[in-house]
Every structure is written in structure tokens, then in C-alpha cells.
Nucleic acid binder design. Structure first.
Lengths: 137, 137
DNA sequence: CAGTATCCCTCATGATACTG
DNA sequence: CAGTATCATGAGGGATACTG
């Protein structure tokens, strides 16, 4: 087993994890990162570390609970670091790790796609609701 | 107002949609596509149209309800088409639209990222749960 | 400032049974 | 085959109040 090259090992690992399988850890990871708060937090941290209050301000509508919960999960998963500066008052900074940064392009793409294609989607919804089937006749 | 060029209008529209704003339609679209079933369905349809039962088989663990619900939402949003062949028994095929296909690279990236980085994430979780702070001392 | 703790409720999801 | 209908469960998430 130890005779496999790194490349071979990586190939094996790719095959070993299949997000289509409900029991696969990769599926659970997919579930976790397929979360609106995750994409918003990672996008917010794209350019620079941010303090808790900054994140709370940038991501409009997020509750303290969900923001804290999301940040803790991302910290545990190794996607960002949490740095406490014991001043008065306390200061806490969040910053992406290299692992988190590797996910950033994907998260940025999702957000960009949503912003760029919302009008097409809204038009499609209009057609659908007005009865696209009848119109095709 | 009508004197703006198409390019200007598009620029304005880009600025007008900001997924960070809770009230923005783009935010709601982001919420919708940030869904594990959406990413799995779109990935499954990447190469070819599929029948309902094929999707149900490929995406292990999805319930009839969630699969149908997800497919309907994606159809309404114009990301895929639903084609009924009135044979006996009925045959229904799902196929990505160009709009759905434009989202495909992103969805494929998410799934690939989860499968490729799950081990790093699991390692990070282990460190976190064992008390990474203590270990750094 | 940056949380934690608590209550509460809606909605998302799964399981099951039925149908054109 | 490809759904729809119904019920049951609990996790997601908001509001509020409190704390180091």
C-alpha cells in the first residue's frame, strides 16, 4: 500500500469519495458548504480579515445566532481562523485559511451567478406561472 | 431613462443586485441554489438528459418528495426542461437549459471541492475537537 | 464588543400510502 | 413509471435578554 505514488493515492481518494452517496462524508461536506450563510461569509472575507461586527453589518439580515453558528462551524472545518485580541472591549478577527481560500473562487462564482442571472430566472418564473405549456401550443 | 444604452442598463442592473442585501432577489436566488439537492441534480444532468427514476437512483438517499420538489423549482426557474412522453408507462425526461448549463461549472466545482478536500476538513475537525488552541501553545 | 442562553415557532424534510 | 397527498418530526432560525 505504501508503494503507491502521491498521484495514485490522490486518484484513489477521488474515487473513494462520491457526493452522490448519502453515507459519504463528502456528501455531508457538500451539504454544509451548500449554505447561504457560508457563501456570504466566505465572500465577505475574500479581501481582508473582518471583525464580528463588520460581518454582521455586511451580511444584512443575519442574526447573531446564525452568524456565530456559521463562523464556529467554518472555524472547526479549518476554513477560517478566529483571533481574539484581549483588549477592552474585546476584538475578534476572522480570516480565511488557505483551505478556506481554496473554496473562495467557487463561492464567489455562486454569488456572481445569482446576481447576474436573477433577471433571466425571474423571467422564466413569469413564463412558468403564466402557463408556458399553453403558450407553446 | 430610456436613453440609457443596453450596456449602461446592464451596469446599473449589476449594481442594483447585491446578494448581501436580505431584500434583494439575488439573495433569494442564492438561497435557492445553495441547496444540496440542487447541486446534486444539476451535476447528475451534466452529460445527458435523465429520467426521473435515473435521477432517483443516482442521487442516493433523496426522497420522492424532495426530488420532485427540487425538479419543479428548477423547471420554474428555467434551469431545466421537463418533457413528458405519453407512452405507457409514462416517461419523463429532464434536461438542462442553456441557463442551467451556465450554472453547471459552478455546481461541478462545489461537488469536486467537497470530494477533494473532505480529508483536510476532517483533519481540521479533529484538531479543533482535540483543542487546537492548547496544541498551539 | 462579541458573544451565550433561552424560548418559540415555522418550515423543510422524511415516511408512508395512494393514483393516473 | 412518475408522480401526488397526507401526516409527523425536528432542525433551522428569529427575538429577546443576559454576560465577560
Amino acid at each position: 500500500m505504501a508503494t503507491r505514488t502521491a498521484a495514485q493515492r490522490r486518484t484513489d481518494e477521488r474515487a473513494a469519495y462520491d457526493a452522490y452517496l448519502a453515507t459519504c462524508p463528502a456528501r455531508q461536506l457538500l451539504d454544509r458548504i451548500s449554505d447561504k450563510w457560508v457563501s456570504l461569509v466566505l465572500n465577505a472575507l475574500a479581501d481582508e480579515p473582518l471583525r464580528y461586527r463588520d460581518l454582521n453589518r455586511i451580511i444584512a439580515g443575519v442574526s447573531q445566532k446564525m452568524l456565530t453558528q456559521t463562523l464556529r462551524a467554518l472555524e472547526r472545518d479549518g476554513l477560517l481562523t478566529r483571533t481574539v485580541t484581549p483588549s477592552v472591549p474585546v476584538r475578534v478577527d476572522y480570516e480565511l485559511t488557505p483551505l478556506g481560500r481554496s473554496l473562495l473562487p467557487v463561492m464567489a462564482s455562486i454569488k456572481a451567478w445569482a446576481e447576474c442571472h436573477i433577471e433571466e430566472v425571474q423571467a422564466a418564473r413569469g413564463d412558468y406561472d403564466r402557463g408556458a405549456a399553453a403558450a407553446c401550443e
